[in-house]
Design a binder for these strands. Structure first.
Lengths: 143, 143
DNA sequence: ATGTATGCAAAACATTTGCACCTGG
DNA sequence: CCAGGTGCAAATGTTTTGCATACAT
């Protein structure tokens, strides 16, 4: 149950917070912008202000419950943090996001940071490309 | 000379464009936001509108003359593309940017993309951390 | 000349903030 | 009850756009 997760993070278990956390947990899309969350809640008939969404998402991020990504400059997207670190591959056609993890890359990143004397706190790796589905669609259009 | 570079890219060699390109070529900082460019030109006594800066930077990016980065969500920064691909390490304290290149990581990225059937068009890797200088400063403050 | 580029100001977004009211513990 | 949370609307910061004027070729 999410209300205990919230209290564990030192946050009061309010209605908006529970709704937002629940949404991020259940959503199959997995990567949602503040606007996405807002619209999803509206459609579900929930009354939440957009300001609250931003505030809550920021708090969740600080609490380590979710992770923020800046795939493009336009807007941030958030995803539930389920303990497993992974990187992202983003389809530039349809926006689909695929997650992956590569031990070799992780190791090299740490090695490079320490080589330059950096105290590494975080890293982000995005591979941009065209996903198999969009390649197929493109091939058919060409026929 | 930059005017020929511009024409090669299919862009008229106008004064603002030459100034902006020159600035990006010469600037030691190497990673500038639109606002940075704007202020630098004002200080140099040049009359350029901020809208032109944005338009020109976007055109330069499309033309492949410069590369755009979204280190954080706030604002984009641009750097001259001198043919050598590299990734970035960003100090979260002072904002300093260190460039690096790692063959192993590059290879793994391609391997992963093709493993998932993606046609990779681009990728971005940022390592965030605290640079040696800021670590030192922090240690002194603690004394 | 003439199509393109620029400057200005207004618009468009994404996100943040001040403040009065409401709510969870 | 009361500290903290929320909603609203206004403010912010960045980037984009409409339009009349200026410029490169």
């Amino acid at each position: 149950m999410s209300s205990s997760d919230l209290r564990k993070a030192g946050l009061k278990a309010t209605l908006p917070r529970m709704r937002i956390l629940q949404l991020l947990e259940e959503n199959s899309q997995r990567h949602m912008s503040a606007e996405d969350v807002y619209r999803a809640l509206l459609e579900a008939g929930e009354e939440v202000g957009i300001a609250t969404i931003y505030r809550v998402l920021t708090q969740f991020e600080s609490a380590g419950l979710i992770t923020r990504h800046n795939f493009d400059g336009g807007h941030a997207v958030y995803e539930i943090d389920q303990g497993d670190h992974h990187d992202h591959m983003v389809c530039t056609r349809c926006g689909k996001v695929t997650e992956f993890f590569d031990e070799t890359i992780e190791k090299r990143q740490h090695a490079i940071a320490s080589q330059y004397g950096y105290d590494m706190t975080d890293h982000s790796l995005y591979i941009f490309g065209i996903c198999p589905d969009c390649q197929k669609a493109q091939a058919e259009r060409r026929r």
